[in-house]
Amino acid sequence: MSEDTGVLARDLALRLGDNQVLRGVSFGIEPGTVLAVLGPNGAGKTSLLKVLATLLAPTGGEVRVLGRNLRDAGAALRRLIGYVAHQTFLYPQLTGWENLYFWARAYGVRKAGDRAEELLAFVGLELHAHETVRAYSRGMQQRLALARALAHDPRLLLLDEPYTGLDRRATDLLDVIIRESRPQGRTVIMTSHDPTRAIRASDTVVVLRRGQVALLADSRDVDPALVDDAADPSGGRMVVQ
């Protein structure tokens, strides 16, 4: 495991108000690989992603992202991270082009206008570039949200429940983005409560249960049907073969 380029969490803890959301989470992944974070609702998947995105500061432990300590990396690190959250981070009153142009500029991308057009073509929205996002279908909005997260060509892509509610076309696009990440050396971390799909798309699987790592394994060794058991608080069968 090269410490300097992937993502490495050591004994990560997060406390939100009265809730201990994450406790002693440790895992490490190589750059250019795909990690799936699985687990039931409330296991801490979204919170883990928010920590990695620098939206929440961990209350304990250490996280190294792309060779830098998350705690003191600041703006320089945020430039390397792309994040797709539950919300799209899009302005409904602006057009698709305007949204991408704004976010590209905000991330300091040179020639943001060209970049916006390039991205619109990549996600197949070039014909709708000058319609307001409010008029987009949900699937189109999600494709635009993916394009938004890619605006600054991030080295780490965080996807929170990316498959939820996607239409066919957006699902295919997502598969392409994940597949193309590996040769580009881009690291991808995604959460999902759909084990089958997530395990197929990933190289490594982490199952969270009540804020703790219940299972950390190579995706090829994990049977999707058994992940639910590992995540189930009352079951608790470990399924590494």
Binding site: Q93, V109, T132
Partner: peptide, 30 residues
């Protein structure tokens, strides 16, 4: 794919200002 530019402050200020003016000119909400 395009490259990310430098970390700054004024580029972000001007981008946000552009976004606010564009939104307002479209909706006249305020």
């Amino acid at each position: 794919m395009g490259a990310a530019g430098a970390v700054g402050w004024w580029p972000q200020v001007s981008a946000l200002l552009w976004k606010e003016l564009r939104s307002e000119s479209r909706t006249h909400d305020s």
